Simulated scan of single mutants.
Amino acid sequence: MPAPNQAALDFLLTRRSRPAKTLTGPAPDRATLETLLTAAARTPDHGKLEPWRFIVLTGGALTRLADLVADRGAALGVDPDKVTKGVDSFARADLVVAVISSPKLSDKIPQIEQLYSAGAVCLSLLNACLAAGWGANWLSGWASHDRAFLTDGLDLAPHETVAGFIHIGTETSAPPDRPRPDLGAITTWIDT
């Protein structure tokens, strides 16, 4: 029998994202964040391509992105409630890490596997933050799919996209647990 890491398993069985709107300062300092990013970068990465990167957003960068969401929402005719929600997600934040999917050309590793790896980085960063005692939430939103926002706001290359915005801070209240999937309804067992 393998030797279990019961504390890690208990964490995974009870982990719960913290809503971004309930996070406040302080946020992790640079040294702490570098440790969390190091943990996130230890994600499955078929071919060792590192098909993702991080953009750390604080202060004026978050204000600038909030303003850009408002401008792009108006230009695109996005529902005003969605625009307000998008603006608030940046304007209220103290620290956001944009996980950027940046696939590499490869004859061996399909782009879809590289995209999965970027998603795994998002979850790894989220879990690292929660395990370290920080509140964290993985968001995207309509602006993360708007090419002008990605180019003007984050200076992404044409082949790059946002896998997620990880909001990190101090939690102000523990959220209640939410209903979890019925394992029997989503699991098929095949033994022959």
Rank of each mutant, 00 (worst) to 15 (best):
A8K: 04
A8C: 13
L9W: 08
L9Q: 13
L9T: 03
D10C: 01
D10W: 12
D10V: 03
D10Q: 15
F11K: 04
F11C: 03
F11M: 09
F11E: 05
L12C: 11
L12N: 07
L12W: 14
L13S: 07
T14H: 15
R15T: 10
R15Q: 13
R15D: 02
R16L: 12
S17K: 06
S17I: 01
S17G: 12
S17A: 15
R18Y: 14
R18V: 14
R18G: 02
R18I: 15
P19C: 09
P19Y: 09
P19G: 05
P19A: 12
P19R: 03
A20K: 08
A20L: 06
K21L: 02
K21T: 05
K21V: 11
T22V: 08
L23D: 04
L23P: 08
T24V: 08
G25E: 13
G25Y: 03
P26D: 05
P26W: 12
P26V: 04
P28T: 12
P28N: 06
P28R: 02
P28Q: 05
D29S: 10
D29Q: 10
R30T: 13
A31Y: 00
T32F: 01
T32Y: 03
T32K: 02
L33K: 00
L33W: 04
E34Q: 15
E34V: 00
T35F: 02
T35R: 14
L36S: 09
L36R: 08
L36N: 05
L37N: 09
L37V: 10
L37H: 11
T38N: 14
T38L: 12
T38F: 14
A40I: 07
A40P: 06
A41K: 02
A41G: 04
R42Q: 14
R42L: 13
T43F: 11
P44T: 14
P44L: 05
P44F: 13
P44N: 13
P44Q: 09
D45A: 12
D45M: 10
H46D: 00
H46S: 06
G47I: 06
K48P: 01
K48D: 11
K48R: 15
K48F: 08
K48C: 01
L49R: 01
L49D: 00
L49V: 00
L49K: 12
E50R: 13
E50F: 03
E50W: 01
E50M: 11
E50P: 00
E50A: 13
E50S: 02
